[in-house]
């Protein structure tokens, strides 16, 4: 029995979630192979090979994979699938796009967003925006699984790196073309893997970044936002925390001006320590907050930033 992990990376760096997916794969106590798909992925492959528990890294490099498309990546995985009983990846854009297609090609079910794994085929996963947890068992010969990275410990460093093997890339599916991308460049840590997240709601208005930015920088934190703040244009889409955005579970989550709608709570209620700052003492966010402060955020957030400087 072997596990194949589809690595998530940005072309230069292996994402922290991939390291945690390797940690999650330990559940099977089986050889772990990591697949790195992209263009010029030597550095990423070397990072994957240096993870504890990884026995082999498979590299598939081609110019047309610089921006990997679902059809191409799914075809690569399908060709390899005969050697593996588990195909696993962190539950992020790439895997959410590719792995269901792989499962369809292999005629097997897929388990999305597992937060607990009991080998060989039992999983706990959130349903209904995390309001309930379902324990499920898959009966298929190949387990196709995405894992919620923040629910698993990251793999450590290996004593000696695993072998890296290059595989030829199949021809591109010419029916799909990558056109362009627009990524927000930020010096701050990535939201999904940040140790501290400071998040704001719509009530910040135009002062969203002005007020939360200094607090985030003071804490070395990523900035999150509610759907309402994003829809109103005060924060970019990729900052959205919740069922339809990013799910985070940092050590510290500071929710300022956030009422605590189900949709938002689904994305952050597994944080270790939750702080809520809201002027409404009855806001639902206070029910999940370890420390709640009833205050006007326009006063409290700058005060908090200042207090932390000392």
């Amino acid at each position: 029995m072997s596990v194949l992990i589809l690595a998530d990376h940005d072309g230069r760096q292996l994402k922290a979630a991939s390291r945690r997916a390797v940690g999650a794969a330990k559940a099977w106590n089986a050889p772990i192979h990591v697949l790195v798909v992209g263009d010029d992925t030597a550095a990423v492959a070397a990072q994957a090979a240096a993870l504890e528990g990884v026995t082999r890294v498979l590299r598939v490099d081609a110019a047309h994979l610089a921006h990997p498309l679902a059809a191409d990546v799914a075809n690569i995985i399908k060709a390899l699938a005969g050697d593996f009983q588990v195909i696993l990846a962190p539950h992020a854009t790439l895997a959410k796009d590719v792995l269901p297609r792989v499962a369809g090609l292999l005629d097997v079910a897929m388990i999305a967003d597992a937060i607990e794994i009991t080998a060989p085929a039992t999983y706990v996963r959130p349903i209904y925006a995390g309001n309930l947890l379902a324990t499920v068992e898959s009966n298929d010969p190949i387990q196709v699984v995405t894992v919620r990275a923040t629910s698993f410990a990251a793999a450590g460093d290996a004593a000696s790196p695993a072998a890296i093997e290059s595989l030829p890339a199949p021809a591109a599916d010419t029916r799909v073309r990558w056109v362009s991308e627009s990524k927000n460049v930020s010096e701050r840590p990535e939201l999904a893997s940040a140790r501290v997240v400071v998040s704001g709601g719509r009530s910040f208005g135009e002062r969203f970044e002005e007020l939360l930015g200094p607090l985030a920088d003071q804490l070395g934190a990523a900035i999150g936002a509610t759907r309402a703040a994003v829809d109103a244009g005060f924060a970019p889409n990729e900052q959205q925390v919740g069922q339809t955005g990013t799910v985070v579970a940092p050590e510290l989550y500071i929710a300022a001006g956030i009422s605590g709608a189900q949709q938002h709570l689904a994305g952050m209620k597994d944080s270790q320590v939750i702080v809520a700052i809201n002027h409404d003492p009855d806001a639902a966010i206070f029910q999940v907050a370890d420390f709640g402060l009833v205050a006007d955020l326009f006063d409290a957030v700058p005060q908090l930033t200042k207090a932390l400087e000392q």
Binding site: D10, H67, L69, A92, T93, L94, R175, V176, R177, W178, V179, S180, E181, S182, K183, N184, E190, A192, P236, N237, E238
Partner: peptide, 13 residues
């Protein structure tokens, strides 16, 4: 498409 860290545009036949 909405992807991690931004948006991406693709064309499909």
């Amino acid at each position: 498409r909405e992807v991690d860290g931004g948006v991406e545009t693709i064309a499909l036949a």
